[in-house]
Nucleic acid binder design. Structure first.
Lengths: 270, 270
DNA sequence: CGTACTCTTGAGCAATATCAAGGGGAGTGG
DNA sequence: CCACTCCCCTTGATATTGCTCAAGAGTACG
């Protein structure tokens, strides 16, 4: 049996250990994005320097000056309510995003109306990198719960990358990481059984939750069985059956969207 | 039925219209790569400025000075014989590559020895972009026929990107394009039937051949049925059956590795 | 000219999709 | 606060697709 850990290890996203709950809720009021450098001195709660999720937006060690420049670029945040879209396929590509609070799915819609989920993005993860190549977004990004993102105008980011080599390398790593993540998923879709896919999905989510400082054993799914199925190349009934099967085997404990991983070793060995 | 054209259109790789056959075969003798800028005045046949495949390595309009700098970076080519590896998973990541002549497959090998083909790369296409994120290669790149690649040291490329904005944007587009290409493949693996996958594979290859100036209707496959199957998430017998089925339907005409697309409309509508 | 690889085709089987029915929970309006 | 409705989830029965096992023919290369 193919170990699902191969897929697991393919996702090397850097995330912050904890999510700050002290962020000012009024900070939701997005400041308008501008293509000219905004005034420095960002509003408390929306700047990068004290953001708990900074490790996704910036390389490890930046000088105070460089940090201030990043703050100046990431000048707005945006609130997206559950079910609303952050962007749609075909939208002009201007910015990439970092999920600050909440959870998104990205969906490709075919001409025949058929939809496929291409990814789930939780707090601390990048969004929109696929738009760079064609000047327009390739998929819809839809919030699975009330969420907040940082808006990073891509042209300004490229300018910053020009001046700060560490930033340039970080961006390249983020993009390359996205390529590796997807090739891991391809492997999964190409070679794994339904049970292995569901197991790999849960383990992947588990490790991402852990990186954020949450329990890796117990969490709530924000997506439906249908969305999971679309992502994994399975029908919703099959996903449901696999959940039941893993539960009967004593590997996990599920109750609707609540998931408790009882034996991650066994889950990885499915 | 899902149209395979969605996958087709997802691949937006920029390729050159023709392949120069007048390149000096002796140019295969690779000059050693160096991390310090080599002397300018590159050997005829190995520099970028007169390479027919330049559109993959460089943005549309570069000044003579900028072109010279690119020539200076892409200082070596490498010959890889059929069956040999260009790089292996785990190798230290130093360079990206551009296929100049020939054809490669990229393969991920699992710990259990199971292999999966993650992509085929023909002349004019980039190779190795997935290594950026982790400082080491994530897959093996194996030549399917005697091939030649340009070696592009990534640190030098990043330096050039620093100075030439158009180059930076081009690199970002290449990487993002790789992300989009893979999400198209994911869609294929997740939603298409065996017949649709094979049809999409042929159409994709056809369009890439056309972009290179070859016939889009008739070409030789460099890969085996097993490699195609691995790439498409199918068994080799299934691939073979689908070829036969498409032939019976009068959509294609195959004889082993030789393929003739008789009705691309119908192929896309499968 | 032989050997090893590759491709084709058939028969039976296992995994997953499809069709169908019913239960449970969250949000909404009375 | 309760009842209603809509979604979402679960489970069963059946259909279909693609896989496995097997045999034999074609093809490339030393």
């Amino acid at each position: 049996m193919t170990s699902v850990l191969a897929y697991e290890s393919a996702y090397k996203s850097a995330c912050a250990p904890t999510v700050s709950s002290k962020a000012n809720p009024l900070a939701y009021l997005a400041r308008s994005a501008t293509t000219s450098p905004p005034p420095s001195g960002a509003v408390a709660g929306t700047n990068c320097s004290d953001c708990s999720l900074h490790s996704i937006c910036m390389p490890a060690h930046l000088s105070a000056t460089e940090l201030a420049r990043l703050d100046a670029i990431v000048c707005s945040t945006r609130l997206v309510r559950r079910g609303e879209t952050l962007y749609r396929a075909g939208d002009k590509f201007k910015s990439i995003y970092a999920v600050r609070v909440g959870c998104f799915k990205t969906v490709i819609t075919h001409r025949d109306g058929h939809e496929q989920v291409t990814g789930f993005h939780i707090a601390g993860e990048p969004l929109g990198l696929d738009g760079v190549c064609s000047d327009e977004q390739n998929c819809d990004a839809i919030a699975l719960e009330d969420s907040k993102v940082c808006v990073i105008p891509f042209d300004l980011l490229e300018d910053l990358c020009h001046d700060v080599k560490a930033m340039q390398q970080h961006l390249h790593r983020m993009m390359s990481g996205e390529i590796v993540r997807e090739s891991g998923l391809m492997m999964m879709l190409g070679t794994m059984t339904a049970q292995q896919r569901v197991a790999a999905f849960l383990l992947n989510l588990s490790s991402r939750m852990k990186t954020r400082g949450y329990s890796s054993a117990e969490f709530n799914l924000r997506m439906t069985r249908e969305e999971i199925g679309s992502y994994l190349g399975l029908k919703l009934e099959t996903v449901s059956r696999m959940f039941s099967k893993l539960q009967q085997a004593g590997v996990i404990d599920t109750n609707g969207k609540q998931v408790h991983i009882l034996d991650s070793e066994k889950l990885a060995g499915v």
